[in-house]
């Protein structure tokens, strides 16, 4: 198992994987919190144009991808501010434009073809060069400084943007910073998981972590642990099975999500049994219609489970247990879907 550490290319690949495993969920959590889980995917599409431009102009694809992806992410943020009703169409066109531009430009480049794009689309462990590692280390440091150092401010902005503005926080600046940070994360991750799958690494560890957590800080910590676990094991698997690391990492991430989801149900049941009824004595003891929140549309099941109770009256003391069981069964259902 340790012999792969003797190869310099594997050392570089594993270091890159470690940093990506930390950075991607640390930024992705804010996108999930704002219900923009798909934004990472869009940035990935746009970054492809940057990679192709790098080939065409003979400059570094990584830095060109950062420039174009940041521009794309800032544009998405501006569309969110001013786009209103037609915003989704504008975003869709930006995504398609990024992908189409990439494919077109790469074929215009003297030494480029669709094949040159493949390592950027799905990741590649053998092509992480020394200069790539330097870039990845520096950029990860920037991403982590923003996403962890400003976590309270970014949390407030993503939780309730209007309230954040009334507290006097520089909300627009923080939103733009988050957009640029997301773009840099996508570019950092592209060598390891690839542009088409980078969004999965930003979203799935967060979705898995929040099955068992109650708070934001705990979700952030656990999702980073999941992220590192799947990038390291996925990169290793990629070495032995000779598959692109993007594929193995994302398949492992989904497996972790399914596993956590399956374990979360009995855990919630035990927690409900242990804690009894923390609501006891509270006058406004009603069904929590908005209980539970998952990034993958999980609320629907939970909302139905909790929201059908008649509101406005105290419910029986055993209501909590029933609610947990409802949530548990809703989660079971999703777990099965995830595994299928």
């Amino acid at each position: 198992m340790t012999e792969l550490l003797h190869y310099p290319f594997m050392q570089r690949a594993l270091l890159a994987a470690l940093l990506v495993g930390i950075a991607a969920p640390a930024v992705g959590i804010y996108l999930v919190q704002r219900r923009q889980a798909i934004m990472g995917d869009g940035i990935g599409h746009v970054a492809l144009t940057g990679v192709a431009l790098g080939f065409l102009l003979g400059t570094s694809p990584v830095w060109m991808a950062i420039a174009v992806a940041s521009l794309g992410a800032v544009t998405m943020e501006l569309i969110r501010w001013y786009g209103k009703a037609r915003g989704d169409l504008a975003l869709a066109m930006l995504f398609y434009g990024g992908l189409a531009g990439g494919v077109m430009i790469i074929n215009l480049a003297p030494n480029g073809s669709n094949a040159s794009l493949t390592t950027y689309l799905f990741g590649s462990i053998t092509t992480v060069s020394d200069s790539d590692v330097v870039a990845i280390v520096c950029l990860s440091a920037f991403v982590l400084a923003c996403s962890l150092g400003l976590r309270r401010q970014l949390f407030a902005v993503c939780q309730d943007e209007e309230f954040a503005r009334v507290t006097g926080l520089p909300v627009r600046l923080l939103n733009l910073l988050l957009a640029v940070t997301a773009a840099v994360t996508v570019t950092v991750a592209m060598r390891v998981v690839g542009l088409l799958l980078v969004s999965a690494l930003m979203v799935i560890p967060v979705a898995a972590a929040q099955q068992v957590t109650r708070g934001f800080a705990a979700t952030l910590g656990l999702s980073v642990i999941f992220g590192v676990a799947v990038t390291l094991s996925g990169t290793t698997m990629s070495y032995y099975a000779d598959v692109p690391p993007g594929g193995s990492i994302v398949v492992l991430a989904i497996a972790v999500f399914a596993l956590v989801t399956a374990l979360a149900a009995p855990l919630a049941k035990r927690r409900a049994a242990l804690h009894g009824h923390p609501d006891r004595g509270d006058p406004d003891h009603r069904g929590s219609g908005d209980g539970g929140s998952g990034g993958l549309g999980s609320d629907h099941g939970v909302t139905v489970a909790g929201g059908t109770r008649p509101g406005g009256r105290s419910r029986p003391q055993d209501g909590d247990g029933a609610s947990s069981r409802d949530q548990a069964s809703a989660r079971d259902g999703r777990g099965a879907e995830g595994a299928a």
């Binding site: 959590i29 999930v32 919190q33 704002r34 219900r35 889980a37 949390f155 993503c158 939780q159 967060v206 929040q210 957590t213 109650r214 708070g215 934001f216 979700t219 908005d290 929140s293 998952g294 990034g295 609320d299």
Partner: peptide, 8 residues
Amino acid sequence: AAAGVPAT
């Protein structure tokens, strides 16, 4: 509407 990530 709940946010996408739990918060204490």
